[in-house]
Amino acid sequence: MVTGLLGLGPVAVVLGLVGLHRTRTRGTRGRGFAITGVVLGVLGTLLAAAGIVAAVLLVRASSSLPSDVASPRDAHVQQLVTGNCLGTLPEPAADGTVDTVQVVPCGQQHAGEVISQFEFAPDAVWPGQQAADARVARSCVLSPEEIEANATVITWAPTQDGWARGDRTGLCIEVLDLAEDV
């Protein structure tokens, strides 16, 4: 029971089962403690497993993507890097945020491509939304070839909420004017 209270789930299960076996074979007292140890051990083990799964999912959801993915997938904007191609350009939420996007292999038809990233200093103070947007926009420069191909750039800058969670990356996304190609 003590190991269960200390959060040592698997140890509590094993010791609780040993205790149950001893109370049956030797007729000693402590059956209630043994059962409590097993129950606490099982609960502790389940909570630990849930915590590990949550941590793995969090790390996976926040890790950067490769520059070109092998197959289409949904990703959080914070996972995007230069070279990622977007299947569609999502409509921003009412507050201007974009959370998830569909990333596709660049060899497939796509609506936009991340052409550069702007990194604010990790210790920078929130500059305000207009200043953040302007700073990212100034970093987005198209080549003469991209301009000739009627490409335009849209920018995604961190929002105040994202900034508070540690997001310091702005993205420049090249969008080709497909209407002239039709």
Rank of each mutant, 00 (worst) to 15 (best):
P10H: 07
A12V: 00
V13H: 05
L17T: 13
L17N: 09
V18G: 04
G19H: 03
G19Y: 01
R22Q: 13
R24D: 07
G27S: 06
F33C: 05
I35E: 06
V38W: 02
V39T: 13
V42K: 10
T45V: 01
A50G: 13
I52N: 12
I52G: 12
A54I: 00
V56R: 14
R60K: 13
A61N: 15
L65N: 12
P66C: 01
S67G: 06
H76I: 00
V81F: 03
T82D: 04
G83A: 08
C85W: 02
G87Q: 11
D99L: 10
V101D: 02
Q102T: 15
V103E: 01
C106T: 10
G107T: 13
Q109D: 13
A111V: 01
Q117F: 00
F120L: 11
F120D: 10
A121Q: 09
V125P: 00
Q129T: 13
Q129S: 14
A137G: 09
R138N: 12
S139C: 00
C140E: 07
V141K: 15
E145N: 14
E145F: 01
E145Y: 01
I147Q: 14
I147G: 09
I147D: 10
E148I: 06
T152M: 01
A157F: 02
D161Q: 15
A164G: 08
G166F: 04
D167V: 13
R168Y: 03
T169R: 15
G170R: 02
L171S: 08
E174P: 00
E174M: 12
V175E: 08
V175T: 13
L178M: 10
L178S: 11
A179F: 04
